[in-house]
Each structure stands twice: as C-alpha cells, then as structure tokens.
C-alpha cells in the first residue's frame, strides 16, 4: 500500500466557507475530506451522504461482511484514500492483520480466509469491482450457496457505493488524515 499523501485536487471547504445548507455537517468540527469536497456542490451533499450511509452503514449483513466488501473493493479500484481509511476501520471491526493483508493482495486469500463462505463472497466482490462486463453465473451461484439473495443485493449496493467513493476520492486526490496514517504505521499496515 502506498503512502502518497498529497493535497486535494479540489477545494476542501472549511466551516467558514461551508454553504449555508451544509453547515450542520461542519457543526462538530472537521467533517473529513469527503464532506468538505462534496459541500462545494451543496445540493449533492445530503443525497450522497444518505445513500453512502445506508449502503456502507449497518444493515442486514454483518459489519464484518460489509467492511470486507468495502476494503476489497477499494483495493481492486486502487483508491489510496479509501484503502487507508478502511484498513483502519477493518481493524476496528475485528479483521485480523492477516485478513487485511489478504484483502490487500499481499497474501493468498485461501490462507487469509479459510471459510469457503467468505471466499465465495470475495469472489462475488472481485467480479463486481475487479472486472467489467457480464459476471459469469458460476460466481453468483457459488456466492448464493452461502449467502441469501437479499444479502448479496445489499452487498452489491455496498460495492457500488464504495466504487463511487473510490472514484471520488481518487479523482479529487482526497488526503489521508494524519490520524489514519499514524494508526496504520503503528499497526505495520502503512
């Protein structure tokens, strides 16, 4: 994982320049670069955060499965900001260092994820986020053997929302926070 922390390509608004309709997001201090960047188009901020919050936040599947989907997608999309941020989140929700290295592609998935169900899910995520075009039936069928349909729909939305964030953060070159960089360095994951 690279540690290429650069200035944002687009303006990141602070509380003084936060548009009048977005101030609630700045009320408790720095809301982070995603909000600070989206606030430059205020009519998009609320709808975007509502969607992302629903897609990435608590749902019918476990937090572990969601975070697995988010981090793996970010790795496949090569999003430095999201890999950094969600490696820290993955640690918080209990993924092991080996599992994180597996999602990063540093070690074999078979070694990092002994459970067939999780490897099948990763196969589905890889087909969504790591390739283009149609997805072979066998990938879906393998995932469906272990996951209910609604869970795969939900996780597909999670992957899609993550890809939106990946391209936003990559395109605008959003900066990794100092706290996240320090955390990853401490854990040997920087």
């Amino acid at each position: 994982m690279g540690n290429d922390v650069r200035m944002s390509r687009s303006q990141l608004l602070d509380a003084d320049q936060a548009p009048i309709t977005t101030r609630v997001y700045f009320a408790d201090g720095d809301p982070g670069p995603i909000v600070a960047a989206l606030a430059t188009v205020p009519e998009l901020l609320g709808p975007a955060l509502s969607f992302v919050g629903a897609a990435l936040g608590p749902g019918s599947v476990t937090t572990r499965a969601k975070e697995l989907a988010i981090l793996r997608t970010s790795v496949l999309q090569g999003c430095r900001y999201c890999i950094h941020a969600h490696t820290a989140v993955a640690l918080d929700v209990g993924l092991s260092t080996d599992e994180i290295h597996g999602l990063h592609g540093d070690i074999a998935l078979e070694d990092a994820f002994p459970q067939v169900a999780e490897r099948a899910l990763i196969g589905w995520i890889d087909a969504l986020a790591g390739a283009t075009g149609a997805i072979p039936d066998d990938v879906w069928i393998a995932a469906r053997e272990h996951w209910p349909e609604h869970a795969l729909v939900e996780l597909t939305v999670t992957v899609g929302a993550t890809m939106f964030l990946n391209r936003l953060a990559t395109g605008l070159e959003l900066p990794t926070s100092d706290q996240v960089t320090a955390r990853l360095t401490k854990e040997g994951l920087a």
């Binding site: 303006q11 608004l13 003084d16 320049q17 548009p19 009048i20 309709t21 606030a39 205020p42 009519e43």
Partner: peptide, 12 residues
C-alpha cells in the same frame, strides 16, 4: 480571487 461559498445554495 476565490468565490465565497458560505451563502451558496445550489450549483444548479
């Protein structure tokens, strides 16, 4: 040289 955005409602 920079637009103030504190009273910005929408870009639309």
């Amino acid at each position: 040289g920079r637009l103030d955005t504190d009273l910005l409602l929408t870009r639309t």
